[in-house]
Design a protein around this nucleic acid. Structure first.
Length: 216
DNA sequence: TGCCAGGAAATCC
DNA sequence: GGATTTCATGGC
């Protein structure tokens, strides 16, 4: 049986409402945040972004000495590593004159391949950038999504690509759906519905009987 | 106080 | 291809 992700999307949407993600004041901030949040709690990313505030444009960040950049993002963890990754991304982005609309003019899959070739950008980071900065519909098959699907009783594939493709097969080719579905899954994951036993007003209450949602 | 958080690359075999 | 290790801080 094919999990109906469109149905799940509607359930989450009617319960939490539109989220209008990604939480960033600019496209550039979103792109940097995507790298900073790798295996890192968003709270620590937010601290780093605040320190980066004076340099939150590609032109300014490019001129920032690496040691200074590292100092700013220290709170996000893996800071030496992420300094290299941010700089690698900036080098790639510069070929598009740091203009997201130029990047967005590329074909989605070709663009994804390009991003994956950049040092420090893997599948999840690439998909987040594609969806929230460059307007390409891809499903972000992150840890929250896998955990939710598992709890709803799916046999979730181990490979990232398999999960992504399976979800994409179930959804309309609509950017807004991909933007909201991922955001809603995130918001839901951080809500009290991660608790067990069954919490009050769980959006998945109807399917709970047929799933292991509140028993794992 | 130990454990984990919106991963990815390098290095094994 | 898979399994393991490295990268590191802050919060609970």
């Amino acid at each position: 049986m094919i999990p109906n992700h469109l149905k799940r999307y509607h359930i989450l949407m009617s319960y939490y409402g539109p989220q209008h993600w990604w939480p960033a004041e600019s496209t550039f901030e979103m792109l940097i945040g995507a790298i900073l949040t790798q295996n890192t709690a968003w709270k620590n990313v937010d601290l780093a972004l605040k320190k980066l505030k004076p340099y939150l444009s590609p032109e300014k960040m490019e001129k920032l000495p690496p040691e200074k950049l590292a100092e700013c993002i220290r709170s996000s963890g893996f800071y030496r590593l992420k300094t290299r990754r941010i700089r690698a991304f900036l080098a790639w982005y510069k070929d598009y004159d740091y203009r997201p609309e130029k990047v967005a003019a590329e074909n989605g899959y070709a663009l994804r391949k390009q991003l994956l070739a950049v040092y420090g950008i893997g599948k999840e980071t690439a998909d987040a950038m594609l969806v929230y900065a460059f307007g390409k519909p891809f499903f972000i098959a992150d840890a929250y999504a896998r955990r939710l699907f598992t709890r709803l009783g799916d046999q979730v594939p181990k490979k990232y690509e398999a999960v992504r493709k399976e979800v994409e097969r179930c959804l309309p080719d609509d950017l807004r759906v991909y933007q909201e579905y991922h955001a809603l899954i995130d918001v839901h994951a951080k809500s009290r519905c991660k608790e067990t036993p069954m919490c009050q007003g769980c959006p998945f209450a109807e399917v709970c009987q047929a799933s292991m949602y509140h028993s794992s």
